[in-house]
Simulated scan of single mutants.
Amino acid sequence: MAANPVYQWFSALLCYPEADLLEALPEFQTALQQWPELSAQQTALQGFLDYLGSHSLRELQENYVATFDRNRNHALYIFEHVYGEDRDRGSAMVDLLQEYRRGGFELGDDELPDYLPVLLEYLAQVPSEHAQKLLGDAVHVVAHIAGKLNAAASPYAALLQGVTALSPVAPLPLVEPPVRDMDEAMETFGPDFSGQEPLLKPSIETVQFYPKSAYHAAAKGAAS
């Protein structure tokens, strides 16, 4: 059994919808009504469950693809919003993989470590204090994606807002990620495990969901 099932609840709902998800809607409904962690967001999250229950599987799948796969602003890959095409993205990927492995969590070959449902599944398995720390590090990005989805009137905004509400850390605004010439980066650093992105060896042991320079810049702006 998961140590923190509420994260698993969000993880499953943020994945590409399949028939078994719709079959399990009564279980998701029961959890929403019973878990105190979700009480503050219950109305919005109920709206998302209603959305799933009122559309066909094909409609849900088409909307999911249009929302997350065809719109980079809504991507559920955390480092997409932090590093963009900067070479540090590869290093952050490796750091996150190491975090998962320290917790005994191995990814499949077709999964990237910064995919938000993967991170949430990991948070469901680790001690609550550690899960809260990691979520507090990542919440700035989660809230950023939530804002983009909300601006697009997407029903998925409720899920990202719900995850944000679980964090002990208040989110700060996210600065725009740097842009780097990918041909140059590939030539200098070589491809990552997928053969697509430059990959660096990790230089630190902690995961940087939010670069310190960007964090301090956002904090300074929020305080002014």
Results as ranks from 00 to 15, higher is better:
200 L>R: 13
4 N>P: 09
100 Y>M: 09
71 N>W: 06
175 V>W: 11
103 G>T: 06
36 P>L: 03
146 A>K: 07
88 D>R: 08
100 Y>K: 05
85 E>H: 12
45 L>T: 01
104 G>F: 01
48 F>H: 05
37 E>G: 03
133 K>N: 10
62 E>H: 00
197 E>Q: 06
210 Y>F: 15
37 E>A: 13
59 E>T: 07
104 G>S: 03
213 S>C: 10
69 D>M: 02
35 W>I: 13
176 E>P: 13
62 E>W: 06
209 F>M: 10
154 S>K: 02
94 V>C: 10
159 L>T: 00
168 P>M: 04
107 L>K: 00
116 L>T: 02
173 P>F: 01
16 Y>K: 02
119 L>M: 08
145 I>K: 01
152 A>P: 04
75 A>N: 00
81 H>Y: 05
189 F>T: 11
138 A>H: 04
87 R>E: 04
141 V>H: 06
127 P>R: 02
166 L>H: 05
170 A>L: 14
168 P>W: 09
213 S>P: 12
83 Y>K: 01
33 Q>T: 12
56 S>I: 09
142 V>M: 01
150 N>Q: 15
101 R>A: 14
200 L>W: 12
129 E>V: 11
130 H>S: 12
83 Y>N: 02
119 L>W: 07
21 L>N: 00
30 T>A: 15
12 A>S: 08
126 V>P: 00
75 A>L: 00
115 Y>D: 04
166 L>F: 09
86 D>Y: 03
98 Q>K: 10
119 L>G: 06
208 Q>G: 12
25 L>E: 12
113 P>F: 08
160 L>Q: 03
87 R>V: 08
99 E>R: 13
144 H>F: 01
208 Q>H: 15
178 P>A: 02
127 P>S: 03
87 R>D: 05
214 A>I: 05
46 Q>L: 03
127 P>Y: 05
107 L>N: 02
38 L>H: 02
147 G>T: 07
7 Y>G: 04
169 V>G: 09
143 A>M: 08
147 G>H: 03
67 T>C: 04
162 G>P: 14
15 C>S: 10
193 F>W: 13
75 A>C: 10
191 P>D: 09
134 L>R: 04
93 M>N: 08
191 P>T: 11
